[in-house]
Simulated scan of single mutants.
Amino acid sequence: MTAREEILSRIRGALGDAPSAPEVPRTYRQQGARAPGDPELVRQLIGRLEDYRATVVRVAEGDDDAIGQAIADALTVRDIGRVVAPPGVPAEWTSRLADVVVDEASISARLLDGIPAVVTGSVVAVAETGSIILDGAGVCGRRAITLVPDTHVCVVRAMHVVQTVPEGLRRVDPQRALTIVSGPSATSDIELDRVEGVHGPRTLVVVIAG
């Protein structure tokens, strides 16, 4: 018997024939005081994102051309000419970009490493934590394309901004591969020296529509 088999055998013995999961207490706050898309929630989200050293740009709701211009401006100022985007991204978002690679889930991590930026949408954002949730589908794309490129330009619609984490999680499919983004990827060593870009994009640009 291997160590793995022994551990699994002990777990099965401890659980018995018909283990039942204990009921999870739900006494925590599950609803915010403000409705999704409330201007105060959008302001709070912006404040959190800027605290996390993300760059935030606002455009009018429903104006995909303005979103595309904001994306192009953000990439131009960073001298980025090539991006990857999921197939669900509206054409207007990338129409001003010279070199767009549409990801069909076949681009390897090695090839992605040579693409400096990714453009995606999002499904929901949480104001209190400054978090943006991607669900791996549609405008979000698979997880790999949002973790390998050094710059992530992400579009958040104001109507999708909620106040609390439970509200945000209720809006996504828990069986999907969720990615929760709270600012640029960063970590600190034991001496609290901050290093960005270790586990994901070093630069995060958020375009808020609305």
Rank of each mutant, 00 (worst) to 15 (best):
D17A: 15
P201W: 03
A98S: 13
G13K: 10
E6Q: 14
G81W: 01
D189P: 08
V206C: 00
E50S: 11
I180M: 15
V206G: 00
V207R: 01
T179A: 04
A127M: 01
D63I: 03
S188H: 09
P166Q: 07
I132A: 05
T151R: 03
A66N: 04
V83S: 08
G37S: 03
E191A: 14
I107S: 07
I132W: 06
G32P: 04
L192I: 02
A105I: 00
V84R: 01
R82C: 02
E61D: 13
G130V: 13
V153W: 04
D38H: 14
T151G: 09
R142F: 11
V155C: 05
Y28L: 08
V83T: 08
G68P: 12
T27H: 10
T129K: 09
T179V: 02
A18P: 00
V123K: 12
V24H: 09
D103W: 09
L192F: 07
A14K: 11
G88M: 05
E92M: 07
V155F: 05
D150M: 00
G138L: 12
A54Y: 01
E128N: 15
L8A: 08
S95R: 15
R176G: 04
A66T: 07
P22R: 11
T94F: 00
S185G: 06
A98M: 04
R43K: 14
L147F: 05
P25N: 07
E6F: 02
I7V: 15
V172C: 09
V102L: 11
V56C: 06
D38K: 00
L112R: 09
A66E: 14
V123R: 14
V42C: 04
M1G: 12
G114W: 02
G121I: 06
I46C: 08
V172L: 10
S131C: 11
G13N: 12
L134Q: 06
A98H: 04
G13P: 08
Q69R: 15
P90F: 02
G47C: 05
Y28N: 04
V102F: 09
R53M: 06
